[in-house]
Computed example of a mutant assay.
Amino acid sequence: MTTLLLLDASARPFSSATHRHGSHTRRLTARFLARWRAMRPDDAVIHRDIGRDPPQPVNADWIHAAFTPPEKREPWMREALKPSDRLIDEVLVADLIVAGVPMYNFGPPAQFKAYIDNIVRVGRTFGFDRARQGEPYWPLLAEQAKTLVLFSSRGDYGYDPDGRIAAMNHVESSIRTAFGYIGITDVASVAIEYDEFGDERLMSSIAQAEQAADDLVDRLIARRSLGRAA
């Protein structure tokens, strides 16, 4: 059985498939999940709605607690890290992470940045030892064969590699960097563009992204099936 962790980071509470001003990323994550469930109904799904219920940003108490060795933590430190522990536990149990992350002012929403700051944590998802030969940092999830599927949306167009404003896209690159740092490097991404134009180009981009989401489901399920057969 596969465990999916579904992350929705849009501040818009509804999908653009059902609401005129709804979220395109929620549209894609919902489509992906529906197709996956139709093909693998017994797989477990954890849904974390970051857009509606964002994690608390990291503060001084969090930092103090996280960088204190576990055996030396006081009760208030363990309490401060409980929300982070829950988020990390979800990542650890997941085989496939599906994240809907729209572009807000060229980067991910603040809600998703808070999520990243809570799951990229010393001793839990990455290691650090200043006495270690060579690189003192290392990923702790590198051997767990996790996959990240990233769905994004953009108001303008040309943000893909070699596009007219690719250098202004800090969504996929920052998320790939953060997840790669903890050992999740198998990443696929799909995005909808032209949202602010609202014309046939947007409709075409939505159709292409939905087809890409369907194809991703088919490829990932086929890959898992081949892995089991092997």
Rank of each mutant, 00 (worst) to 15 (best):
R73A: 02
F128A: 00
L7M: 06
F112E: 04
P83M: 11
T68N: 08
Y194W: 15
D53V: 10
A191K: 00
S23W: 07
K146G: 07
A34I: 10
A94E: 00
R121P: 01
V45M: 10
A222N: 08
V93K: 14
R35M: 06
L216I: 07
Y104F: 10
R37N: 14
A94D: 02
T29A: 00
P136G: 04
R48S: 11
P41K: 03
H64G: 10
M1A: 12
A60R: 13
R73N: 02
I119H: 10
T125P: 08
A207T: 08
L5K: 03
P70K: 04
T25G: 01
L87C: 06
G158L: 12
A17T: 05
S204L: 13
V217R: 01
G198P: 08
P102W: 07
R12S: 04
A167C: 06
P83H: 09
A30N: 13
A114W: 04
A114T: 14
Y157F: 14
R164T: 12
R35T: 13
M39Q: 15
H24M: 12
A38Y: 07
R176W: 13
Q144R: 15
R35L: 14
A110I: 02
P139T: 05
Q208E: 14
E193W: 14
G123S: 09
L141T: 11
D49A: 06
I97F: 02
L6Q: 03
F179Q: 13
G107M: 13
L141C: 08
S152Y: 05
A222Y: 05
G123L: 06
F14Q: 15
A212L: 06
